[in-house]
Simulated assay, not measured.
Amino acid sequence: MKKVLNIILATCCSLMFQPLSIWSQDINVLFKEASNFERVQKENEALEKYKLILTQDPANVKALVKATELSAAIGGRQGDKNNKRLFYETALSYAKRAWQSDSNHADAAYAMAMIAGRMTDIETENKQIVAYVKDIKQYADKALSINADHAKANYTLGKWHYEMVTLSGLKKAAVKLFYGGLPSGDLDKAIAYMEKCKTLEPYFALNYLDLAKAYKEARQPAKAIEVLNKLVKLPTRTGDDPAIKAEGAKMLEAIQ
């Protein structure tokens, strides 16, 4: 009788843990498939894989951050404003879920900062624009307080400093009005953060482009040319890279 009970217990334990093992394996396979799609710039297909992961593990920070990045990237290339807004708002919802899942995760904080920057491009209410401007700084600072070597958080904070220096007239007026004064953007800090990003993630094309713009704004054309020459030779890693490199090539031609 004891032997029979032991067999039943062993069988139950096996059945109990088998689904978990299969589930974990499926998650790993989906991550691998998503990564492979990203590697060949099939971003829509990669996003669908991350969505599948989230159906099984809704609080998976890595999948949520990847879904944020891809939704924002795909949205940025939409010609229709409504479609762009839909993708950006979806990206924002993924970022919020990542933040709620783990507010001490540098990637989650970075995702919140990154999508806040995107939202400033489509938001029409000045007060909300300024709220997003504050969010960029707040969440980028948080990401770097958790991991000072987070490449894209360094870029995001550098871009924030650059934009605070170069704000257009209407945006500058709105920020002054609702922020309680113009934030202290610093061009030297912008360059320092983006230079650090370049060291940490040497194939991140957008960082090169904005770093070159910062050097140009700082009246250091030789440095801008050096960065742009590196940019145009970078391998294509994302769906945005061809357009970024084309803009860099045009900027390089204009400076030289």
Rank of each mutant, 00 (worst) to 15 (best):
V65D: 11
K3T: 11
E217Y: 13
T238P: 03
L182E: 09
D186S: 14
S103T: 00
L64C: 05
E217F: 14
A143V: 02
K84F: 03
Q138L: 09
E217H: 12
S21N: 10
K81S: 14
I27E: 03
E45R: 01
E43R: 09
K96W: 01
N229V: 03
N60Y: 03
V65Y: 06
M194F: 08
S35P: 04
T120I: 07
W23D: 09
I115D: 10
A151W: 06
A140M: 05
E163M: 12
W160H: 00
L92R: 12
K233W: 04
A151I: 04
P19Y: 03
G158V: 02
S101V: 02
A59G: 00
K213N: 14
L187M: 11
E89A: 05
T11Y: 13
N154E: 05
L167I: 03
T238W: 11
A59C: 01
M194Y: 04
P19Q: 07
T166G: 06
Q138G: 00
L170I: 15
K62C: 01
A140W: 04
A108C: 01
Y179G: 09
Y155D: 05
Q220K: 15
T90A: 08
S24K: 11
T166I: 06
N36D: 14
A148G: 13
L252R: 07
K216L: 14
I136R: 02
L182H: 07
I74N: 06
L206M: 12
A91G: 15
H161T: 10
V227Q: 10
K216E: 15
M164E: 08
I244T: 09
K142G: 00
Y162L: 13
G76H: 08
L157S: 07
K84Y: 06
A46G: 09
F31C: 02
A106F: 01
L9K: 12
L47D: 10
A143S: 15
A143Y: 01
G169I: 11
S14K: 02
P183A: 07
Y162V: 02
N82G: 13
I225D: 07
K127E: 14
L177W: 13
T90H: 06
L234R: 07
H161R: 01
K176M: 12
A111L: 02
F178M: 04
I136D: 01
A143I: 03
